[in-house]
């Protein structure tokens, strides 16, 4: 399958601050997750695709044409991260306004706005002013304006921010439907699990550099070489540690404070299922079970530590 989006040696500096550093990647049709902690360069990468930012070096191509290009922009839908916009307009007017800027006539833009607001679940609120919208409604409105003109490429910058669990599930379903329709969808997020619900294809940025790209589970597999940390809070950490020490999946145990036990394991799934069972068998109350490194920051830490080790 040919690449829809291409970055060739793209670097971007904001004065002395490095936004992107020599990024070369290709994005094919379907959903791609753009991952990275805050400040990794995700938004910069997206803005390079929308032409809002001109790379200091390198070039961005969409459908083989160099961005910025008005013809390409007609086929692009973009939902930025911002939350405050056009507060005096109603949601429907806001979306129709941007549809008109995409080249639709007034009546057509309005009809499309009504239809797309219905698709994102805002049919009852579309005639209310944007200033009265909740964060989740604003996210849906941004998605509506991004897909209203039937774009081939949809770029979504942190679309889950501010959504409640139900809203997140609906947004994930919407994004999945866009991918299933054959569009190229790039979704940026700093939460790995969210992206995992939508796609297996990811691009990972860290400090403006391309850290990893490809299938999510292949990348996770690399991370599984490192032990996972699981934090257990219990009033009897020594009793629980004694029970866990006999288990083969436990690599190390460490006490943190009076009521916390840190478990290191290379088989997190087995550990998660065994801990509640062992606690019950030994009569140890288990107050909390959390995974402090089950997030993207930990993934990055492992990857960057691995890279440093390799370099050394």
């Amino acid at each position: 399958m040919s690449a829809v989006l291409e970055f060739v040696g793209v670097s971007k500096w904001y004065g002395p601050v490095l936004g992107l550093r020599d990024v070369t990647l290709q994005v094919a049709q379907g959903i791609t997750g753009l991952l990275g902690p805050n400040g990794a360069g995700k938004s910069t990468l997206l803005k390079c695709m929308t032409g809002e930012i001109t790379p200091s070096r390198g070039e961005v191509r969409m459908f083989g044409r160099r961005v910025p290009d008005p013809e390409v922009f007609r086929r692009l839908g973009y939902a930025p991260e911002i939350e405050v916009f056009f507060e005096e307009l109603t949601g429907r007017e806001f979306v129709a306004h941007l549809a008109e800027l995409s080249g639709f006539g007034r009546a057509d833009a309005d009809a499309r706005a009504a239809k797309v607001m219905q698709r994102v679940g805002l049919e009852t609120a579309m005639n209310r002013r944007v200033s009265t919208y909740s964060k989740g409604m604003r996210q849906r409105t941004k998605l509506a304006q991004a897909i209203l003109h039937e774009p081939d490429v949809v770029l979504l910058d942190e679309p889950m921010t501010g959504l409640d669990p139900v809203g997140r599930a609906q947004m994930v379903a919407l994004i999945q439907s866009l991918g299933a329709e054959g569009r190229t969808v790039v979704v940026s997020s700093h939460i790995l699990d969210e992206v995992e619900l939508m796609t297996r294809e990811i691009v990972v940025l860290y400090q403006g550099q391309l850290l990893a790209q490809g299938d999510l589970h292949a990348i996770r597999g690399l991370i599984d070489r490192h032990p996972h940390h699981i934090a257990l809070r219990t009033p009897k950490p020594r009793e629980l540690a004694a029970a866990l020490a006999r288990e083969p999946f436990v690599a190390a145990l460490r006490f943190e404070g009076d009521d916390q036990l840190m478990v290191e394991t290379r088989e997190p799934d087995r550990c998660y299922s065994a801990v509640p069972r062992l606690a019950k068998e030994h009569g140890v109350p288990l107050l909390a079970l959390t995974s402090p490194d089950d997030n993207l920051a930990a993934v990055f830490r492992y990857l960057t530590l691995g890279a440093r080790g390799g370099a050394a």
Binding site: P70, R74, P80, V84, F85, L101
Partner: peptide, 12 residues
């Protein structure tokens, strides 16, 4: 302040 250019300039 609002970043509204992102809506405008990602269009023609």
């Amino acid at each position: 302040m609002a970043g509204a250019f992102q809506f405008h300039f990602s269009r023609p």
